Simulated assay, not measured.
Amino acid sequence: MPTTSVQLYSLRDAIADDLDAAIARVREIGYENVEPYAFVERATDLERAFAATGLKAPSGHVAVIDAGDTAPIWDAAERLGIHTVIDPFIPTDRWQTADDVKAIAERVNVLTAEATARGLQFGYHNHQWEFTNKVDGRTVYDLFVEQLSPETVLEVDTFWATVGGADAAAVLRGLGDRVVAIHVKDGKVDGDIRTALPSSESALIVPEALQRAFENQTPAGQGDVDVAGILAAAPQAIRVVEFDAYKGDVFEGITESLTWLQANDTAGTAA
């Protein structure tokens, strides 16, 4: 089975209550890898929890593109064994024009060079607006990718790419090996959520249609997303299970996703 992880943001409420207990439960469920979020601020706590459980963090999320001082980010990544640092979010209002895309790509390329100099990788994680927003008929995601340095990597959130109108499996095949991780996420994909965008301040401040996309997320294999086709299209990528929100017990949700992946994800090479 390919390398499988879980985005700890899915468990943010449990982590806020008791980080050590939440991460220990992740290991008990059967995960060997996690993807931390905002890991710079909680590096000491995460280091302790990883040492206690044996969990590894091959990738991690943190806001890098808008950071004034990036040295603490690279330092924390090295401390926690995070090889791939991913910026999770640049809001939709900054993805409107060709100049917008160029500015983000140039910044990402600078950060990629910084990461490479530290022996790390740097990349970006999409939502749906990078596929919904278009310039001259092309998605801003396409324009963005073609301006990135060869060393820049990508983490494709396959649910949000699908919501944005993309054929996520085709996107992955087109990007090839530069996709180092995918977010494995399933749920209901209604037509009206494609163009329902969050506020520019937060991906979590959303209109009603988009809120449904959060609340109706399901374990892998139980929704409208072609998860099996997506996995086959990116055999090299780390599978990162994630829920933006979940109506039930989120620990049960990540357990069901892991069980489904163990039964259905035969692509790639075990790691």
Score class of each variant (00 low, 15 high):
residue 2 P to R: 15
residue 2 P to W: 00
residue 3 T to V: 12
residue 3 T to P: 00
residue 9 Y to D: 06
residue 11 L to I: 03
residue 12 R to M: 10
residue 17 D to V: 13
residue 19 L to P: 01
residue 20 D to R: 10
residue 20 D to V: 05
residue 25 R to I: 01
residue 26 V to F: 04
residue 29 I to Y: 07
residue 32 E to S: 13
residue 34 V to M: 10
residue 36 P to E: 04
residue 39 F to M: 03
residue 43 A to W: 09
residue 49 A to T: 03
residue 49 A to K: 08
residue 51 A to R: 14
residue 51 A to V: 12
residue 51 A to N: 11
residue 60 G to R: 07
residue 63 A to L: 14
residue 67 A to H: 09
residue 69 D to Q: 14
residue 73 I to K: 02
residue 73 I to Y: 02
residue 75 D to L: 04
residue 78 E to Q: 15
residue 80 L to I: 13
residue 80 L to T: 13
residue 82 I to H: 09
residue 84 T to R: 14
residue 86 I to G: 10
residue 88 P to K: 12
residue 88 P to T: 12
residue 89 F to S: 12
residue 91 P to H: 12
residue 93 D to I: 04
residue 94 R to V: 05
residue 104 I to Q: 14
residue 105 A to K: 14
residue 108 V to L: 10
residue 109 N to I: 09
residue 110 V to P: 04
residue 119 G to I: 11
residue 126 N to A: 04
residue 127 H to C: 05
residue 127 H to F: 06
residue 128 Q to E: 09
residue 128 Q to I: 03
residue 130 E to S: 07
residue 130 E to T: 07
residue 136 D to H: 03
residue 136 D to C: 00
residue 137 G to W: 00
residue 137 G to P: 00
residue 139 T to R: 14
residue 139 T to L: 08
residue 146 E to P: 05
residue 148 L to G: 01
residue 149 S to K: 04
residue 149 S to G: 13
residue 149 S to V: 05
residue 161 A to V: 09
residue 163 V to F: 07
residue 166 A to G: 07
residue 169 A to T: 08
residue 170 A to F: 02
residue 175 L to N: 10
residue 180 V to E: 06
residue 180 V to A: 12
residue 180 V to M: 06
residue 181 A to P: 13
residue 185 K to C: 08
residue 186 D to C: 10
residue 187 G to H: 13
residue 188 K to T: 15
residue 190 D to N: 15
residue 195 T to H: 12
residue 195 T to R: 08
residue 197 L to R: 11
residue 203 A to S: 15
residue 204 L to S: 14
residue 206 V to K: 02
residue 206 V to H: 08
residue 207 P to F: 02
residue 209 A to L: 04
residue 210 L to D: 06
residue 210 L to N: 06
residue 211 Q to R: 15
residue 213 A to P: 04
residue 216 N to E: 14
residue 223 G to E: 02
residue 228 A to Y: 03
residue 230 I to K: 02
residue 236 Q to S: 10
residue 236 Q to N: 12
residue 238 I to C: 00
residue 246 Y to T: 12
residue 246 Y to E: 09
residue 247 K to T: 15
residue 248 G to E: 12
residue 248 G to H: 12
residue 252 E to I: 06
residue 257 S to I: 09
residue 263 A to F: 04
residue 264 N to G: 10
residue 264 N to I: 10
